[in-house]
């Protein structure tokens, strides 16, 4: 055979082992791949199952690491069963496991056995946003006095640049209160909150902070994040919530470190 033909043959041999080995890793309905065996004529079923278990358990562990409050709410057994379904249906497509689980909150929302916990998906969304903030690029947040030099006539046209770590999660449930109560290890009493809660997630320095946004705050921030000027964002927030308080919201986003730069007069 010519070297080129040999190389072609090599390629077909090489692709076969992963193609044979991979499909059954996350599919318990498949049999042990034909490409593998035990040594000295031994069977390979339990041996191959070590890989199956490693893959499945480590990916469930990865979800548990991203969603600790969700797991605390459901209990470990419930969480791992739920996560196992998700891992098998939607395994990661990146080797960076801190990116994994973006589809998990939507999965939770549809998950048959979690229907009695309608706020669970939103708690998971806050946790996913928390980890994004944790790994986001570092940037100096705006100083508390950043608005001081802006002439009043320019305030409406002022545009804010979002801090890389800033995230907003809206909820029809008291998701921030439930998230906060379950994120630590301490015991907590009955949760009395019942009103919808929007979350603002920031990481101005090294610590991720989750805040409960005031009425209209999420609309205000969402419009600012999309690059709209302050005036338009405030109008949208007022339209959404008549009780929207502009000075209090500006003070709040500065205190939270939600933005990293400000542009005005141009």
């Amino acid at each position: 055979m010519l070297p080129a033909e040999l190389r072609e043959l090599d390629r077909s041999v090489q692709s076969s082992y992963a193609e044979s080995f991979a499909p059954a890793l996350l599919d318990p309905g498949r049999v042990t791949p034909a490409a593998v065996a035990g040594p000295h004529g031994k069977a390979a079923t339990k041996r191959y199952n070590v890989y199956r278990n490693n893959v499945t358990a480590s990916l469930i562990n990865a979800l548990a690491a991203v969603f600790p409050a969700t797991q605390r709410i459901t209990g470990t057994d419930f969480f791992r069963a739920m996560a196992r379904f998700h891992v098998r249906a939607t395994p990661p497509v990146s080797p960076l496991l801190f990116e994994y689980g973006r589809d998990f909150p939507d999965f939770i929302e549809r998950y048959e056995y979690a229907q009695s916990l309608p706020w669970l998906a939103d708690v998971a969304r806050i946790e996913r946003a928390w980890l994004d903030a944790y790994h986001a690029a570092d940037a100096e947040p705006l100083a508390p006095q950043a608005f001081a030099p802006i002439p009043p006539e320019h305030l409406g046209n002022t545009i804010l640049l979002p801090h890389p770590a800033m995230r907003i999660v809206r909820s029809r449930y008291p998701a921030v209160t439930i998230f906060s109560a379950n994120r630590g290890r301490d015991p907590f009493g009955q949760i009395e909150a019942a009103d919808p809660e929007d979350a603002l997630v920031t990481r101005p320095k090294l610590e991720v902070v989750v805040r409960h946004l005031p009425p209209g705050g999420a609309v205000f921030l969402t419009h600012l994040m999309s690059g709209e000027p302050l005036g338009a964002a405030a109008s949208a927030a007022l339209a959404d919530s008549p009780s929207f308080d502009l000075p209090a919201n500006i003070a709040g986003i500065l205190a939270a470190g939600a933005f990293s730069d400000v542009k005005f007069g141009g």
């Binding site: 190389r7 043959l9 090599d10 390629r11 041999v13 090489q14 082992y17 992963a18 193609e19 080995f21 991979a22 890793l25 996350l26 490409a35 593998v36 890989y51 490693n54 893959v55 480590s58 990916l59 990865a62 395994p91 990661p92 497509v93 990146s94 080797p95 496991l97």
Partner: peptide, 25 residues
């Protein structure tokens, strides 16, 4: 070892056969 096939990341160190072909690759 290998850990990704097609687009799926398996998060485990998976084995390979030892042949002239895999050696070259």
């Amino acid at each position: 070892a290998w850990s990704t096939h097609d687009t799926t990341f398996f998060n485990d160190l998976l084995p390979l056969p030892y042949t002239q072909a895999t050696l070259a690759r």
